[in-house]
Design a protein around this nucleic acid. Sequence first.
DNA 1: CCTACCGATCGGTAGG
DNA 2: CCTACCGATCGGTAGG
Lengths: 215, 215
Amino acid sequence: MSTRTTVTPDAVRRAALELFAGKGYHGTALSEIAARLEIRTPSLYNHITSKQELLAHILLQTSTEVLDDFDHAVAGLDDVAERLGAAVRVYALRHATHRHEALVVNADVAALEEPVRSRVLELRRRHERGVRDLIIEGTANGDFDVEHPAVTSFGILEMCVAIARWFHEDGSLSAEDTAEAHAELALRMVAHRLSGDRPVSDPTDRELTAGKRTT
Amino acid sequence: MSTRTTVTPDAVRRAALELFAGKGYHGTALSEIAARLEIRTPSLYNHITSKQELLAHILLQTSTEVLDDFDHAVAGLDDVAERLGAAVRVYALRHATHRHEALVVNADVAALEEPVRSRVLELRRRHERGVRDLIIEGTANGDFDVEHPAVTSFGILEMCVAIARWFHEDGSLSAEDTAEAHAELALRMVAHRLSGDRPVSDPTDRELTAGKRTT
DNA sequence: CCTACCGATCGGTAGG
DNA sequence: CCTACCGATCGGTAGG
């Protein structure tokens, strides 16, 4: 049983990732990681320098990739709704395709030691700010109708994060469909409401681009 | 320094709650709980029977209250949008006013031992199902326009859960305003869209009641 | 990659 | 409420 390939630093990280995701950093013993690789605990130190380093690698890499994803997703897009849709799509997709990483990032930042912790938190803040600024921009130019941009951006981001908690690859929805569904939900959250119960104070230049169709 | 009141089982639970919320169940040592109460670790056992019991109490109580909240919130309301709004409002409010409980529930279910773990998960599933059924009902009778009820209900619920991660009592929004903002977001997520870019494949009986206006 | 072993700390008990 | 102490386990090192 078990594939029994040669142990590499990457294999250790993968084993750690799955265990951290399931039981948390503090809830996972190095002996369990070793057992999964069918080696003894001290042998892990041929591939890593500490347990903490395993955690740091996962969180730094993931946080960096999230920010890169965002930058690439919005690059070249003009319409702010398109940019928000693309940002949400790629963020949601990541949480469906990288469930374990996402779970660890969100459950175990507290277990990170400085200075890595601050770096990770800074990367996350940058991403949050990027999304929030899109919402602020769309609200300012009248494309969106949002009362609390910060609350709305947290709501959008966190429902995407939650995908990691319920998504299953064998479910009825593919990762891509799930991502698309979240982009749609996000655009609904910022869209103008039906029925004129919310008077559009500044309808300048906005014909009826309200649709999310992009071609 | 410190209030220095007599230690009670409830005081132990409160100290444990704050520490679990900040560092997780496995990341918190009983010695830290004792230190916060200015007693020695073994003295804790005059008030509790085990560390695990502390966790079980927090999670069971919170999960039970969430379900009670839901039942009371929707009771007596007729309109499905009103019921969904009320359910979201009360759930969001709890996550703003009981941040620590919410953080522990979501981070440390995995640390719960059986059979309590199964009971807690069952309570959570019941609540999820309650909200999802509202969305299904509203979609079926035409009040809502939702393509993926399960995804939508997870999205709504999880953005509320996330409140516990970012809400601060001294922020610009009160707990009540935050709850109201989330009810609004949830209703947007299920509402009919502006402009007919989504061809209504089955327009039976749904003329253009598209609005969510009731009565 | 291993055995042997380290000090520290864990949750918890004995016995006042 | 305490001191004294338990066995188990932790992350990690020595030295092949």
